[in-house]
Design a protein around this nucleic acid. Structure first.
Lengths: 343, 343
DNA sequence: CTGTTAGCGCTTTCAT
DNA sequence: ATGAAAGCGCTAACAG
């Protein structure tokens, strides 16, 4: 394997008979030398095959790398194929690319941020990381941080009003006081299993968007005079199709059959639609189903899904902009109700 | 903002009254000092709040960072929401995570690899990058490289036999000698527009998987004695739903109406199914449609899509393994025909 | 406008 | 088993 040329700024300077500072300036500070000198030097470097200052050395010296880490809530393996995370990433990358920043993906399940913290200019943290230990580490890293869908005190953040959105979609789904309602929830309790919630210890209730959504559902239910017990709430440990289908099957094989299924993600709702259809239920006549997120596929399902559409790409773009502008404020984004045919 | 503690290995060594080499060894080379000494030092570091050697300095010194760059064919913005790329990335990340390697996403549209080349241990290059200039840069970088779906001489690679796969799926789709066949192709010519191919200059015919697939189709057609002129081949500049739908509409509003639609990706085929259904065509009675890739959604479409299923996650995992093992060979992966109801 | 020089924080020979 | 010291390649203060 051909080794890299081993050209350094110093060598180049020697060859050209100028000081290394001048070469460095030619690359980094055009105002520090004459236009002609700069052009000559750059041309000579090109000629020699020197592509510019070594980025690792530059990082050590300057402390900045143009790399930003995106901390995903779970392992990358899961997150890279999650449609909501995808859309979020799309927003992030669109802004980063325009600003010549590079993206490092990092798992929220990691033990620590140590292995990357010195390489990156900061962190965009999408959802509370599965490993809560990361949060104090982030705080004391001294790096720039933007959080999304949760907050770290004093840090920039991007959120939507999950409770209000959940309230609205639930209000729409529930018609009658004696509707039988079931909730297909996401990570409500600390379990790797699909299970009912009963009165199990709820997971970090304050920071979790799932609990905000549950609060919204509950408020809507309370307004109609319906009560919801833990046995009508399912916990799904992770938003993926297989688990969602299993949970939907459970809920649909229950007596009495639910009239309304409040699903905390579209992936879950779409799975529920498929399962309900498979056992011959008519939607929305026999059962009403609503989702949350507004992924693309929800527009194409049969029936089209009624859901909360959040602008995940905008969320990503906003997070990236706050990061770049070093803007420390807390942004609250809007959402829409997407009216489909599933309720 | 609380600044980082500013603790360095040297300061820690001073505080503990040992040399910096000893502290370094405590972290990096357990065999270089007594077990007890090591434990004491590590404990003391923990106490002091020193999390270990600065990674940037370590990188400068050692030249390795545990970061691997994944070069995607196009801009990240597009690729993060492409289902095939997602599945590939899933395979890559599953292996990288197990090996404590971090993933940097890099756009194949970039001007150069310069901004990251010094930060990473090497590159996995998924598909020929849109900017062909990157290829010589990669070659002379001296870094470890694994290519996927194309080759760079002397470098490890992972491929499938696109021509053979395309031949098989086309052979299945074509029934009669007087079938009227249309191809919905991907990036066959250098155009940002949806257009017929006619006899336009074909794009880098040798390295492109699209041209291998076209060769496979042509072979199958030739065997049945059908000829295919450029006006029955559409070029879609990019695999996304909107463009695919437009192209499908064009093809379906053509006289004579095609009996068979050979689509170079599932995204295209699924769009074609929707468009055909929308204008009242029965699939497969009125028109047969086949895809390529085998994305998850193709299993759930109505009718279920007949397509080539490639194991994109395995492809990703294989690429990552070759990278990690420094294995320099050229892997050819298998594929399956997924028989659905669309043909 | 240009050159000299002191580190950035670490790893690794080479002595001890 | 431990320590002293030489850089890795660069940037930025400072002096000229």
């Amino acid at each position: 394997m051909k080794k890299t040329q081993g050209l350094t700024l110093k060598k180049v300077a020697d060859i050209l008979g100028v000081s290394n500072a001048t070469v460095s300036n030619a690359f980094n500070r055009p105002d520090q030398l004459s236009e002609k000198r700069r052009k000559d030097i750059l041309a000579a470097c090109q000629e020699l095959g020197y592509n510019g200052p070594n980025q690792a050395a530059r990082l050590l010296r300057k402390g900045s790398s143009n790399i930003v880490a995106l901390i995903l809530p779970d392992s990358l393996e899961y997150m890279v194929s999650d449609p909501v995370a995808n859309q979020f990433m799309r927003g992030v990358t669109s802004v980063l690319e325009k600003n010549n920043l590079n993206l490092l993906l990092y798992s929220g399940q990691s033990q620590s941020i140590q292995s990357v913290v010195d390489f990156v200019d900061g962190f965009i943290c999408y959802g509370a990381p599965r490993n809560p230990q990361l949060i104090p580490q982030l705080k004391k890293s001294g790096k720039k941080i933007v959080t999304v869908d949760f907050d770290i005190e004093e840090m920039a953040s991007v959120n939507i009003d999950n409770e209000q959105a959940a309230y609205q979609i639930a209000s729409r789904a529930i018609r009658l006081k004696d509707d039988n309602v079931a909730v297909l929830g996401l990570r409500l309790v600390d379990s790797e299993q699909i299970c009912r919630v009963y009165d199990k210890q709820l997971l970090d209730c304050n920071s979790s968007i799932s609990h905000r959504r549950l609060d919204g559902y509950s408020k809507a239910l309370a307004e109609k005079g319906i009560s919801l017990s833990g046995e009508r709430i399912w916990n799904i440990p992770e938003s993926n199709i297989k688990l969602a289908s299993l949970a939907a099957k459970e809920a649909l094989s229950c007596q009495p059959l639910p009239d309304v299924l409040l699903c905390m993600s579209d992936l879950i709702a779409l799975a529920a639609i498929r399962e309900a259809t498979a056992i011959g239920l008519k939607i929305p006549q026999d059962i009403r189903i609503v989702g949350f997120d507004g992924i693309e596929e929800s527009l194409r399902s049969t029936p089209k899904l009624t859901t909360i559409h959040q602008y995940s790409d905008l969320k990503g773009a906003t997070a990236a902009k706050l990061f770049i502008d070093n803007d420390n404020h807390n942004e609250l984004l809007g959402y829409d109700i997407q009216i489909g045919d599933s309720c």
